[in-house]
């Protein structure tokens, strides 16, 4: 009865933000499909993807909302920050302007999410090292200054992509363990599995196979 894809203990809500063309959709696609999408069209409004991962032996379903980077969609996309447990803030290491905008994205993220939201900084397109416009050290310093975790990734090669998503989940899970994230509140971005119900029928086995 162990039905793999449906067997999970928590749902974490993520949001991916950042300038247009930094590869947000490609990161999502790489993470959910393990493939690189070469001709990724501009996202219209928001898109949605899921994947189940494992953190400390717990199966966790990630519900990831990929937002459009274009300014004209801000009116729509900013409504999706609400209740995100994790925010992946992406810039393009080959375009300094996308890095320069990070502080405004960060302000948005801080204002629109709850204080426990884990914000993760991703420098995408690390495969294009030759065209690099933002050094690792500089971005790392920015991340440290703002208390963000930072990784350079490549949606194309898949390098570090898993780590970014998993590390974020680990931090959220850590927050739950610490008790700093209160699951009883609505909009925390995390939906816990309920305590095992003592259903009249099959209550016992239900514990073993929570599929």
């Amino acid at each position: 009865m162990a039905a793999g894809p449906y067997n999970y203990s928590y749902i974490f809500k993520y949001i991916i933000i950042g300038d247009m063309g930094v590869g947000k959709s490609c990161l999502l696609h790489q993470f959910t499909e393990k493939k690189f999408m070469a001709d990724c069209p501009h996202t219209i409004g928001v898109e949605f993807g899921t994947r189940i991962i494992e953190v400390s032996g717990q199966k966790i379903k990630l519900q990831i909302w990929d937002t459009a980077g274009q300014e004209r969609f801000r009116a729509v996309t900013r409504s999706y920050y609400r209740g995100a447990a994790g925010a992946l803030m992406v810039y393009d290491i080959t375009r300094r302007s996308t890095y320069n905008h990070l502080s405004s994205w960060l302000t948005d993220a801080r204002n629109l999410t709850n204080p426990n939201t884990v914000i993760f900084l991703i420098g995408n397109k690390s495969d294009l090292d030759a065209q690099r416009d933002v050094t690792y050290e500089e971005a790392k310093a920015f991340a440290d200054e703002n208390g963000l975790t930072f990784l350079e990734c490549s949606a194309k090669t898949g390098e570090n992509v898993e780590d970014a998503f998993l590390e974020t989940a680990r931090k959220i899970y850590q927050n739950i363990q610490d008790g700093s994230l209160d699951l009883n509140q609505a909009d925390s971005g995390v939906q816990p599995k309920q305590l095992p119900r003592t259903t009249p029928a099959g209550g016992g086995d239900a514990k073993q196979c929570n599929c």
Partner: peptide, 25 residues
């Protein structure tokens, strides 16, 4: 949300675009 963060959507009702946008999202 927890501890009122994010704020209840109704607090945005003075800004219809934001209010409606948040509800729809």
């Amino acid at each position: 949300g927890p501890g009122g963060v994010p704020k209840p959507i109704e607090l945005l009702s003075h800004d219809p675009l934001r209010y409606v946008g948040d509800m729809l999202a």
